[in-house]
Design a protein around this nucleic acid. Structure first.
Length: 419
RNA sequence: GGAGGCAUCGCCUAGUCAGGUCUAUGGCGCGGGAUUGCUAAUCCCGUUGGGGCGCAAGUCCCUCGCGCGUUCGAAUCGCGCUGCCUCCGCCA
């Protein structure tokens, strides 16, 4: 949610940001609603002040004057009730309109829409050279017997997978390596609940925009989180974070659930796009003036992990038109997949500034006053896609897969296979 | 799933039975100050959060878990919801 006051004081700024996103929001209507709301609010508050004063007089009054005063106040009370009903209606209209408004856009974010408008920030590492024809992750995974999507389809339908044997140990190794890199930098490991209330979905900005992507447990009115970002951001909802304990950093490990509605033709092979995967996610709550630096910090951790995995990657800054509603600025890392011959998005790192904090009411108090915090999130390891990248980049002629050195202390083995 | 209890401005707490100066009491903590004079103590002042108007000083409104209701008036009465606790059942 954006700051309504900004809408009042600098509507041009908001309008420019929304245009860069290509967001269709009727700002004039919003401004009109806000001004009607405040005008009516003043009327209501004046009436309440009158009622409060009259109430005191009644409390002190004795005798016949009292019943007369009560009769007078009844008329006042009726009028106030009518005004309050009107106020509530406008407030609700305003709230519904506001929750649809996406975040502002960072001035440095590239303009445009679609992949071709993203800015290439850097490319690191070089594609591995093979003296054989490299296979894609599915051929390798099935060959090694560590990925089984056919049986998963039998049990759960398409876009599910069984991970088996060394793939499972690889998952735990990846997660533990990420934690070990992040904990010294103040990230507190957390395993959050993955079933959350609608409030958490709205608070983090996934609702109302992405409601179609979320699994719902209708009987209990709970939703399966598509990322640990949702329960971690919501963890401190309606809290005042002590200034001397800022920033607050977490690395959350959770299973992630995504309906992938509307992606029927895309990434149907293997485990690149599945309904369920595990992920370690970084999340920071920080002071507003620190969020640009914090964003770079999260991105640096992501790059460090991919370098440790010895996988070539590139960093993209996402263009204004492709930012999700809560994002102010976003960087993706794409790993090179030699078997498939394409780049694959493996991390996403966003600065949402005060957008989530305003919805979730997460504040901090300093001498300068109380203010909303900034929130940021970034992928530490999306396990499924990390496994895909490892298999394709470190495959060997005999069908086995080499484990990069940094990971070996965690896996306990240096190779998977040969079959 | 069943039965019962609880929810007050950072934490603890008075107030709720008998609705009206509750403009919510006190303690802890925190901030500022005074005095004594040194492994500290005592005293004074301030301290929930949010919003409207205003250049400001200020002023008004809301906030006793949330919502709805009763009433001229709700921390207080009624209903619903949420959370926590205890017991029973079930359960990894």
């Amino acid at each position: 949610m954006i700051d309504v006051r900004l809408l009042r004081t600098d509507p041009g700024l908001v309008r420019a940001s929304l245009e860069r996103r290509g967001a269709k929001v009727d700002l004039d209507h919003l401004i009109e609603l806000d001004s009607r709301y405040r005008a009516l609010l003043q009327e209501v508050e004046a009436a309440r002040a009158e009622q409060n004063a009259a109430g005191k007089r009644i409390a002190e009054a004795r005798g016949p004057g009292k019943s007369q005063a009560i009769a007078e106040m009844k008329r006042l009370s009726d009028r106030l009730k009518q005004l309050e009903a009107e106020l509530a209606e406008i407030r609700s209209e305003l709230d519904h309109a506001l929750i649809e408004v996406p975040n502002l856009v960072h001035p440095d974010a590239p303009d445009g829409f679609g992949d071709e408008s993203n800015r290439l920030v850097s490319t690191v590492g070089s594609p591995p050279v093979f003296d054989f024809t490299p296979k894609d992750h599915m051929d390798i995974g099935e060959g090694l017997g560590i990925i089984d999507t056919e049986r998963a389809a039998k049990v759960s339908g398409s876009r599910f997978a069984y991970l088996l044997g060394p793939a499972v140990l690889l998952e735990f190794a990846l997660v533990r390596m990420a934690m070990d890199r992040l904990m010294p930098d103040g990230f507190v490991p957390v395993i959050p609940p993955v079933l959350v209330r609608a409030e958490a979905m709205f608070g983090t900005g996934f609702f109302p925009t992405d409601e179609a992507q979320v699994y719902r447990c209708a009987d209990d009115d709970l939703y399966l989180a598509g990322t640990a970002e949702v329960p971690i951001a919501s963890m401190h909802a309606r809290e005042m974070l002590p200034a001397d304990r800022m920033p607050r950093r977490y690395v959350g490990y959770s299973t992630c659930f995504r309906r992938e509605a509307g992606t029927y033709g895309r990434d149907t092979r293997g485990i690149i796009r599945v309904h369920q995967f595990d992920k370690a996610e970084m999340f920071s709550f920080c002071f507003p003036e620190d969020s640009d630096n914090e964003h770079q910090r999260l991105l640096a951790h992501e790059e460090g992990i991919w370098q440790a995995l010895e996988i070539p990657y590139r960093v993209l800054e996402i263009c204004a038109g492709d930012l999700a509603a809560p994002n102010y600025r976003k960087f993706d890392i794409e790993a090179w997949l030699p078997g498939t011959g394409r780049w694959l998005e493996v991390t996403s790192c966003s600065n949402d500034i005060d957008y989530q904090a305003r919805r979730l009411q997460i504040r901090t108090k300093r001498d300068s006053g109380t203010e909303l915090v900034h929130t940021l999130n970034g992928t530490a390891v999306a396990v499924g896609r990390a496994i895909v990248a490892l298999l394709e980049n470190h495959q060997q002629a005999d069908g086995s897969v080499r484990i990069p050195e940094a990971l070996q202390p965690y896996t306990g083995f240096d190779v998977i296979g040969p079959p």
